[in-house]
Amino acid sequence: MKKFSIGYRTLKTAVGASIAIAIAQYFDLQFFSAAGILTILCIQPTKKKSIHAVYTRVVASSVAIILAYLFFEIFGYRPVVLGLMLLLFIPTIVSLKVSAGFVSSAVIIMHLYSIADFTLAILYNELALMAIGYSVGLLVNMYMPDIQPELNYYRLKIEDLYKKIFFEIAKYLKEGDTLWDGKELVEALQVLNKAKALAFQDVENHLTRKENLYYLYFDMREKQLEIIERVLPKITALPVIVQQAELVSVFMEELSRNIHSGNTASFYREKLEEVKVEFAKMPLPEDHPTFIAMAALYQFMEEMDAYLAIKQSFKGM
C-alpha cells in the first residue's frame, strides 16, 4: 500500500477550489461550484503548464459559448442539437490546438443547455465563472516549492556513483579481477532520469528562464555515462593484465577521488596526455594477447579523453 501523503499540488488544488467557490458564492453566481471545477482543471505541475492550461481553456470556452449560442438559439435546446454542436466543436478546438480545454468547455456548454435560455445575464454569469475559476487556478499555481536542495542531492548522488565506478575500474586494472556487479551503472541511469526531469520542471517554473544549470549538468553527466558504458566491456575483456594497466589504474584512481561539479577537466586531460606519453615509452607487445590488451587500454584512454572533453565544455556549477 502506498504511503499516504499530501503534496503541494494537492494542497493548492484544495485551497484553490475552496477560494474559487467562495468567491462565486459571494457574487451569487449560478452554478457557483463550477468555479471550483475550473480552478482544479488549471492546477498543473509547473507555472508554464498552468499558464498554457488557462490559455487553452479560455480559447476553448470562448469557442464553446459562440457555438452554443448559434446552435441552441437557431435549432433549439435538444439533445440532437447538442450532439451536432459537439461534432463541430471538438474538431474546431483540435485544429486550434486547445483540445486540453474540452472538459472545462463542456462544463460551460452544459450550463447553457440546462438553462435553455441564452441571455446577457447568463453570458455574464458564465464569463464570471471562467474569470474566477481560471484566475484563482493561475494565482495559486504561481507558488512552487524550492527544489534546489533536491537537485543538489541528485548532483552529489551521481558524483558519488561515478567515483565508485571509476574506483572499481582502477581496481580491476590493478588486480585483474573484482567482485563488482556494476549496479552503480543502473543506479546512475535511474538517478539521471529523475534528476533531469526535476531540473526541467524547475525551468518550467521560471517564466523567463530557458535553461537550468542543473539540467545542463545532468545532461553532461548523461553523455559521460554513455561513454563509460561503451568502454567498460573493453576493459573487463582484457585477455591479460599488462604493465601499462597499472599506469592507467593510477590515473583512474586519482580521477575517482576528484569527481565534483567544478571544472578541472583541462587539468586531467593534461595528466592523461602525460599517461599516454609514458604508455608509449613502455615495451612493445611480444604476443597477440598483449597486443590486444594494450590496444584496448589505449582506446580506453582515448574514450576517457572524450569523457573529460564533455566535462570541459561545461562551465561548472
Rank of each mutant, 00 (worst) to 15 (best):
M1Y: 10
K3R: 12
Y8G: 04
Y8D: 07
T13N: 02
T13F: 04
V15N: 03
A17W: 00
A17D: 00
I19S: 04
F27N: 09
F31P: 00
I43E: 00
K49M: 07
H52I: 12
V54W: 02
T56H: 11
V59A: 11
V63R: 09
L67Q: 13
Y69Q: 08
F71I: 01
F75Q: 01
P79K: 15
V81G: 01
L96M: 14
S104V: 09
A106K: 03
I115S: 02
A116D: 08
A121D: 15
I122R: 02
L123G: 12
E126I: 01
L127V: 04
M130D: 09
I132T: 02
I132V: 09
G133W: 02
G133L: 01
S135W: 02
V136P: 06
L138T: 15
V140M: 01
N141M: 07
N141D: 04
E159Y: 13
L161M: 11
K164L: 10
G176E: 06
D181P: 05
L185K: 11
L185D: 15
V186L: 11
L189A: 12
K194H: 15
A195E: 04
A197G: 13
V203W: 07
N212M: 09
R221D: 10
E226G: 10
R230M: 08
V231A: 07
I235P: 00
P239N: 08
Q243P: 00
V248A: 03
V248M: 03
S249K: 08
S256A: 14
I259M: 14
I259H: 05
V277Q: 06
E278S: 12
K281F: 06
P283C: 07
M294Y: 06
L308W: 04
